[in-house]
Design a protein around this nucleic acid. Structure first.
Length: 277
DNA sequence: AAAGAAAGCAACCGCGAGACC
DNA sequence: CGGTCTCGCGGTTGCTTTCTT
């Protein structure tokens, strides 16, 4: 593993980040540090990360403590290989959301954004490339080989945000919901149908709304987040059904018909809900 | 068996948003 | 209302492990 680094004045840069302070340890965590952090959070709870290491007696920066807890020490973190159904879910979520790792992780119980991001970069993106699919856009790398669908290829790139291949540098969920001003009108019936659809489909495969930690912010804060969660589930489910229906047909045609496109994006769903409660 | 390459993954970094003063 | 602080996120780095030659 990585050798722990104890930062001193010689290695500290001009950065003013917390981790550049003298005496703050970097590198891999030891079992002892893990124990100290886990025990402290068990007793005192998480949060206030900046002051937590001092209170817990750790020579780490708050960021490092938070990351360690979120990605490794949390009891809800699931270790072990990604199951095929989880992989399928990651693919579908990435198709819909782009590199919104925290959002994706929020829909996969026990998995962290870091883990999913790593898995995507090391496995899934390579798999897609080997299949001739662009992992960023989920479209064919060589459109020529895809026959009639190629005719729509250029248009798709311009105006269909079925996934978000180039998300902005800050990818908060709120931004996801607010970035598209292309207001596509929806009716009360449509939004109601999606909501009702969610009720029928249930939450078995998407996981429970996460109760803590990374990505869980999507679904744990208030009614709007809950509604977004439900909406996201409906997107995933409908997307899956349409892919099955397309069944080796024109994948991208099916994609265009996805609920994401019908709504424009989740923000439109919210706007609509707020205007028509 | 040894060396180099590739893969895997934990951790770091910088930035943006929201909270707080 | 502007400045500062804190948190959380996505991108990236670099060390360790595994595979290949």
């Amino acid at each position: 593993m990585k050798k722990p680094i104890l930062l001193g004045t010689s290695t500290a840069t001009s950065r003013t980040q917390c981790c550049s302070k003298v005496g703050i340890k970097k590198g891999p965590w030891t079992a002892e540090e893990d124990e100290v952090l886990a025990n402290y959070i068990k007793i005192e709870g998480g949060g206030r990360w900046r002051t937590l290491p001092k209170r817990a007696g750790l020579l780490r920066c708050g960021k490092s403590c938070r990351l360690r807890w979120m990605n490794y020490l949390r009891p809800t973190v699931k270790r072990g290989p990604i199951a095929p159904d989880e992989e399928d879910l990651i693919l579908r979520l990435h198709r819909l959301l782009g590199n919104r790792w925290a959002l994706i992780a929020g829909r996969i119980p026990g998995r962290t954004d870091n883990e999913i991001k790593n898995y995507w970069n090391t496995h899934l993106s390579k798999n897609l490339i080997s299949q001739g699919i662009d992992p960023r856009t989920h479209k064919p790398l060589n459109p020529v080989s895809h026959g009639s669908s190629q005719a729509n290829q250029d248009d798709d790139d311009d105006d269909v945000p079925e996934s978000n291949p180039n998300p902005p540098s800050s990818s908060k969920s709120s931004e996801l919901m607010g970035e598209n001003t292309n207001s596509m009108e929806t009716t009360n019936l449509e939004s109601h149908q999606i909501y009702q659809h969610q009720q029928e489909v249930g939450d078995d495969c998407m996981g429970q709304p996460s109760s803590s930690g990374n990505g869980g912010d999507l679904v744990e804060n208030g009614n709007e987040d809950h509604m977004f969660s439900l909406f996201l589930d409906s997107l995933i489910t409908d997307n899956q059904q349409q892919q099955q229906q397309s069944n080796n047909g024109d994948l991208w045609e099916a994609e265009i018909k996805s609920p994401m496109v019908e709504f424009g994006n989740p923000q439109n769903y919210f706007n609509h809900q707020q205007q028509h409660p």
